[in-house]
Amino acid sequence: MTEEEKETSLWEVFIQPKNGLSHRHCGSIHASDREMAILAARNVYARRGEGQSIWVVKSTDIVSSDPDKKEEIFSSDDKIYRHPTFYDVPDDVGHM
């Protein structure tokens, strides 16, 4: 086995700081399997009570959008009617 082939898989780590908040990406770690991944994630990213739940996901299992298509996927400048400020409501109606 070459040194390159011996490289353990890369996992992305997500930590939920407390109930009511989402799990948030905080970095990545190397591990040979799921249990080791959780253990390594705990040792590397949660040494000071940073949260109460950890997710680890193999980096190769994440599907991401094409950065070159940022404009076409996320453009919303031409759809200003999707925002509340597009609609005029008389001031004396109060907060709406």
Partner: peptide, 29 residues
């Protein structure tokens, strides 16, 4: 705790370098 932090810091940084396309094994070697 401090020495364990240093290990952690090394690992945060290796993972930042890996996002640039350099493998962990290569850096270790």
């Amino acid at each position: 705790a401090k020495v364990q932090d240093e290990a952690g810091h090394g690992l945060y940084l290796y993972c930042a370098a890996e996002t640039l396309g350099k493998s962990r094994m290569e850096m270790t070697q």
